[in-house]
Amino acid sequence: MFLKDFYSVFDGNLSIAAEKASMFAKEVARDFNPLHDVDSKRFCVPGDLLFSLALEKYGLSQNMHFIFSGMVGHDVLLNFPDTDAEQIDVTDNQGKTYLQVERSGSVSRDPALIESFIRDYVAFSGQNFPYVLVPLLAQENVMFNISRPLVIYESMTLSFDHLNFQQASVVMQEPKIEVNGKRASAFLYFQIKAGEEIVGSGFKKLAISVPSAYEAEPMQVFVDEYLSRKNEYLANLVPVSN
């Protein structure tokens, strides 16, 4: 599967270099969250890459719930255990848990289906900022610190009616946000379609630090700089021939 380009294997454990993680964020998910920049002091591997690796390892189950319980740094050795269990912990070699997977129902290990779903889901996920999150923050009159934005992938849930299809696409539904003091939870809902048939649904939950009231002008400057950096990076990509 295409994910082999984004990790290395040492004694059965997976290691994700900052450069590879950042490349996945920018070139596959189109996610330019500063936390995934190689030189960020708070660098972490994208949750979408961990999710993708879990699907590569364990297949796509009819019901799945992912909890992102730790931020994975550069070259952390991760253990994706060989198991058919319904509950799985992805840990480092000190036993710290970074990802919890709960699954049930039928399982597809069709690599074409799994890659199709991964690519479409992470593309959906990477568009959450600014197009979804900024309107939600403005709606609730809250704002993250634009000098040190903290937006964390907390969990994700998937539910399929069946897995008898070859390709999947993700269609956004109405999102919502809940604010509790200086913290907010954003719920990003989606349908999963095979052609015109709705075959499942899910949602992604984000934890956001929101220490201040919304200010349109500074946020617009931040968004403009974000999009400029994104567009410049993508414009300089060298097309890969298949």
Rank of each mutant, 00 (worst) to 15 (best):
P111H: 04
D92W: 02
Y131R: 13
G47M: 07
H65Y: 11
S69P: 03
S228L: 13
L237C: 04
V199I: 11
I198K: 15
A216H: 05
F203E: 08
V122E: 00
F165S: 01
A168N: 02
E197S: 12
Y233H: 15
A207S: 10
E178L: 14
A213W: 01
L55G: 00
N164Y: 00
P34R: 15
V151R: 06
L50V: 07
R148C: 03
V210I: 14
T83N: 05
S147I: 07
A194N: 09
D39T: 08
K204M: 12
R42Q: 10
V199W: 05
L78S: 11
A21M: 05
S15M: 13
S201V: 00
S201D: 04
N236F: 04
L55I: 07
C44V: 02
V132F: 00
S185W: 06
E27Q: 14
V45I: 14
Q173C: 07
M64W: 05
F6I: 05
R229Y: 07
E215D: 08
I177V: 11
V45G: 01
K20H: 09
E27T: 15
L50K: 04
V151F: 08
I88W: 14
A168S: 14
L227T: 06
I192C: 00
L227H: 02
P130N: 12
G181L: 02
K176C: 03
Q100K: 15
F32A: 12
I67H: 03
N79P: 00
H65K: 14
K205R: 15
K4G: 05
D82Q: 14
N236Q: 13
A186K: 04
V122H: 01
F6N: 00
S22N: 12
E196I: 07
P149G: 02
E217N: 07
S69Y: 04
A207H: 09
D39L: 10
K96Q: 08
S147P: 00
N164G: 01
N164L: 06
F43V: 14
K205C: 09
Y153N: 07
Y226T: 06
D31M: 08
L234C: 02
P239I: 08
L3P: 05
L227K: 14
S159V: 01
L133K: 04
S147A: 09
E215R: 11
V90S: 07
A207I: 08
F190V: 02
P46E: 03
A85Y: 07
F117L: 15
A18I: 14
C44L: 11
N236S: 10
D31G: 06
M143D: 04
